[in-house]
Measured scan of single mutants.
Amino acid sequence: KRCPSCQAPIEKNEGCLHMTCAKCNHGFCWRCLKSWKPNHKD
């Protein structure tokens, strides 16, 4: 998949759905690609 903010390629190996892009530091949900918020729901 690609970061929804900067389009950098992102690879997920394991862990939770909260992802942070290493290039732009954007926090997002791996499943729905929406911005991550404390009360995030898919």
Rank of each mutant, 00 (worst) to 15 (best):
T20W: 07
S5V: 14
S35M: 12
K41M: 04
K37W: 07
C24Q: 04
S35H: 04
K1H: 03
W36L: 14
H18C: 03
A8H: 14
L33E: 11
R31E: 13
C3Y: 04
A8R: 08
E14H: 02
A8K: 11
P38H: 00
L17E: 11
S5G: 15
C21N: 03
C24S: 04
R31S: 10
R2A: 13
G27S: 14
H18R: 11
H26C: 01
D42E: 09
C32P: 00
S5A: 15
E11K: 05
I10F: 05
C6W: 01
G15P: 06
N25V: 06
E14T: 09
C32S: 01
K1P: 08
M19H: 03
L33C: 03
C32V: 00
S5I: 08
K34D: 04
I10L: 05
G27V: 13
R2I: 15
Q7T: 09
C3H: 06
Q7V: 07
R31G: 13
N39T: 13
A8P: 02
K37A: 13
S5F: 03
C6Q: 02
A8E: 13
E14Q: 08
I10Y: 01
K37T: 13
H18F: 10
P38C: 01
L33Q: 08
K1D: 05
C24K: 04
P4R: 03
Q7R: 14
E11P: 05
R31T: 12
K1G: 00
K34T: 05
W36T: 13
I10D: 11
F28I: 04
P9I: 02
K1E: 02
P4L: 12
T20H: 08
H40N: 15
L33G: 06
F28T: 06
N39G: 14
T20V: 15
H40E: 14
K41S: 10
Q7P: 07
M19Q: 11
N13G: 10
C6P: 01
F28L: 06
R31C: 12
C6N: 12
H18M: 13
E11Y: 15
A22W: 09
K34C: 04
T20E: 05
N25C: 13
E11V: 03
W36P: 12
P38K: 04
S5R: 15
N13F: 04
P9F: 04
P38F: 12
R2F: 10
Q7E: 13
W36F: 07
G27K: 12
G15M: 02
N39W: 07
K41P: 15
C3K: 01
P9G: 09
H26G: 11
C16F: 08
P4K: 00
N25Q: 12
K34F: 04
S35D: 11
T20D: 07
P9D: 05
T20R: 08
A22S: 07
R2V: 07
A22R: 06
I10H: 02
R31P: 07
N25W: 03
Q7D: 15
D42I: 01
M19E: 07
T20A: 07
H26I: 04
H40P: 09
W36M: 09
R2K: 13
L17D: 11
A22T: 09
K12I: 02
P4A: 13
K41W: 01
K34Y: 00
H40C: 06
W36A: 12
K1T: 04
C29F: 00
G27L: 03
K34H: 06
C3E: 02
P4S: 08
C21V: 01
A22Q: 00
C32N: 02
K12C: 06
K23P: 01
I10K: 01
C24M: 02
K34M: 04
K23F: 11
C32Q: 01
G27Y: 03
H18I: 08
I10R: 02
C16K: 15
C16W: 08
E11F: 13
T20M: 10
W30M: 06
N25L: 06
A8C: 07
K37N: 06
H26T: 06
L33I: 02
W30L: 08
H26A: 11
R31W: 10
N13P: 14
P38A: 09
K23L: 05
C6H: 06
W36G: 10
P9S: 04
S35Q: 12
I10C: 08
G15K: 05
N13Q: 10
E11S: 03
I10S: 06
R2M: 15
C16A: 15
E14N: 06
R31L: 13
C3V: 04
K41L: 05
T20P: 09
K41N: 08
C16I: 15
R2P: 07
W36C: 04
M19V: 14
F28K: 05
K12T: 10
H26S: 12
E11M: 04
E14I: 05
L17V: 11
C29A: 01
P4I: 11
C21S: 05
W30C: 00
K1L: 02
W36Q: 12
P9M: 12
C6R: 01
S35E: 14
K1C: 00
K23D: 06
W30V: 10
H40M: 13
N39E: 10
H26Y: 09
S35R: 04
L33M: 09
F28P: 12
C6I: 03
K23E: 07
C6Y: 02
P4W: 08
A8F: 11
S35I: 03
C21T: 07
K23Q: 03
G27T: 15
N13V: 12
P9N: 10
H40V: 11
P9A: 07
W36H: 11
D42A: 09
P38M: 04
G27H: 15
P4T: 11
W30D: 11
C3W: 00
Q7K: 15
N13K: 13
F28A: 07
N13M: 11
P4V: 13
L17C: 07
C16L: 09
P9T: 09
C21I: 00
R2L: 14
E14C: 11
K23H: 06
C16H: 13
F28W: 06
